[in-house]
Simulated scan of single mutants.
Amino acid sequence: MIACDECGQSVDGDAHETVTGRRLCNGCWTRFQGTAASLVSGGGATDAIATAGWLERLRRLRGR
């Protein structure tokens, strides 16, 4: 069992690893993906935060 490098939550099984080697839990991974997607598509920091929240809510509603 490891701890998420972002929030410190215990992760059972495999953690998601970023390019820089950070290990993230599912929730932090979802926020990371949303933020990265927005920044790569040309959005600013505000858009990135909004996109991360949107993706997190969508995944929660879909049960993933």
Rank of each mutant, 00 (worst) to 15 (best):
L24Q: 03
F32A: 05
T18I: 04
C7W: 07
S38T: 01
L24D: 06
R31H: 09
M1Y: 10
S38L: 01
A50V: 14
T30F: 04
A15F: 06
D5I: 00
T51S: 10
I49D: 04
G44P: 09
R22S: 10
G43F: 00
G13F: 07
S10R: 15
T18A: 06
H16M: 13
L24W: 04
A3V: 10
E17P: 04
I2N: 11
M1Q: 10
R60G: 02
R60F: 10
C28F: 01
R64T: 14
G63L: 12
A52M: 03
A15T: 12
D5Q: 02
L24I: 05
T18C: 05
I49L: 11
W54E: 14
G43N: 06
E56A: 15
F32I: 07
E17I: 01
C25N: 03
Q33E: 08
A3S: 15
W29C: 04
G43W: 01
D12G: 13
I2P: 08
E6C: 06
I2H: 07
A36Y: 07
A52H: 04
R22Y: 00
H16G: 09
D5H: 00
S41K: 02
A45F: 12
M1W: 06
G43K: 04
S10T: 10
R62P: 07
D5N: 07
D47G: 08
L39N: 07
H16F: 15
M1H: 06
S38K: 04
G53T: 01
R62H: 10
T35L: 13
G8R: 09
L58F: 09
R64W: 15
Q33L: 13
G63P: 02
R31S: 02
F32R: 03
D12N: 15
A52F: 01
G21V: 09
Q9R: 13
V19D: 15
R59Q: 05
T30I: 02
G53D: 03
T20G: 05
A37P: 03
T30D: 05
N26F: 08
L55N: 14
G42T: 02
H16A: 12
E6S: 15
R64Y: 15
I2T: 14
A52G: 07
G21Q: 09
G44C: 10
A36V: 13
I49G: 00
